[in-house]
């Protein structure tokens, strides 16, 4: 009888331990059903796979359609030679507030576990020195508020400004992309302009947080705001995808 009790006790304990270890109780409440197929992309000989549940979660956090996201990942680099799936996807019109999307941004982690976006005022502390734009010493400062930002990986191509890419650069629309009737291929913000992001600091893979970026590329963001920026994320595809769409404000 004692032996029976002991065996039963051990068995029950093992079942409970296995249940906890399987993570059944660790799933977030907002976990969505996995009706979407997985997708993979190969850049520079390296393949990155995203499972169906990962894609659904990314779509939910960034408020885009999961199937469109999967297709955009599968499509690989665009005509510009950039891999920037979120720049092509419209946000869903389903009543999710900007505040909720900002809250969602806190869940965005790099491939090595760092939070990709941090509010500018927390964690990173500015010293007593004035925080000013260090771009061209222009007489006036331009502010662009509530603009979309996405992240891209390059595929060996130089930037539209003729340079090998480097962390700290961004791509912007061409003038013709946002101006009806225009044929100008010039960037909407001139190359070399330094943008000072005012609301968040962005974690760049294998590098660290920064809030100063230089315009050195153009890109295609047909569903993004007029002064959208596409942040160069080097070769880290997972981090770029996890960055999704993030609202930024900046000055130059």
């Amino acid at each position: 009888m004692k032996l029976f009790k002991a065996v039963t006790g051990v068995t029950l304990s093992s079942v409970m331990l296995l249940t906890f270890a399987s993570g059944a109780f660790a799933q977030p409440l907002s976990q969505v059903s996995t009706g979407t197929q997985g997708a993979s992309v190969t850049l520079n000989g390296q393949t990155t796979y995203f499972s169906g549940s990962q894609i659904e979660r990314l779509a939910q956090v960034n408020n885009v359609d999961p199937n469109s996201l999967r297709e955009a990942i599968e499509a690989g680099p665009d005509a510009d030679g950039k891999f920037s799936p979120f720049s092509k996807l419209p946000r869903l019109d389903n009543g999710i507030s900007e505040a909720q999307l900002v809250e969602n941004s806190k869940q965005k982690l790099s491939s090595t576990g760092e939070s990709l976006i941090q509010p500018a005022e927390t964690s990173i502390t500015s010293s007593q020195f004035a925080s000013t734009t260090i771009g061209a010493l222009a007489a006036t400062t331009t502010t662009k508020s509530n603009q979309d930002s996405t992240a891209y990986n390059a595929t060996g191509n130089n930037t539209a400004n003729g340079n090998p890419p480097k962390l700290g650069i961004v791509a912007v629309h061409r003038v013709k992309d946002i101006t009806s009737g225009s044929t100008s291929n010039s960037p909407v913000i001139p190359f070399g302009t330094v943008l000072n992001i005012t609301n968040v600091d962005i974690y760049l893979p294998n590098s660290g947080y920064r809030d100063i970026f230089t315009v050195d590329d153009t890109g295609s963001g047909p569903n993004r705001t007029s002064y959208w920026i596409d942040v160069y994320f080097g070769t880290d595809t997972t981090s770029a995808i996890n960055y999704g769409v993030t609202t930024v404000s900046y000055t130059y």
């Binding site: 760092e114 964690s123 010293s127 004035a130 925080s131 000013t132 700290g168 590098s207 660290g208 920064r210």
Partner: peptide, 21 residues
């Protein structure tokens, strides 16, 4: 920034967890 031969600090950021660039 260097402006006309003069160096000016425009911003300094510090991070306790060493996560800056």
């Amino acid at each position: 920034k260097i402006d006309n031969g003069v160096a000016i600090t425009t911003d300094v950021k510090k991070h306790d967890k060493n996560l800056l660039e």
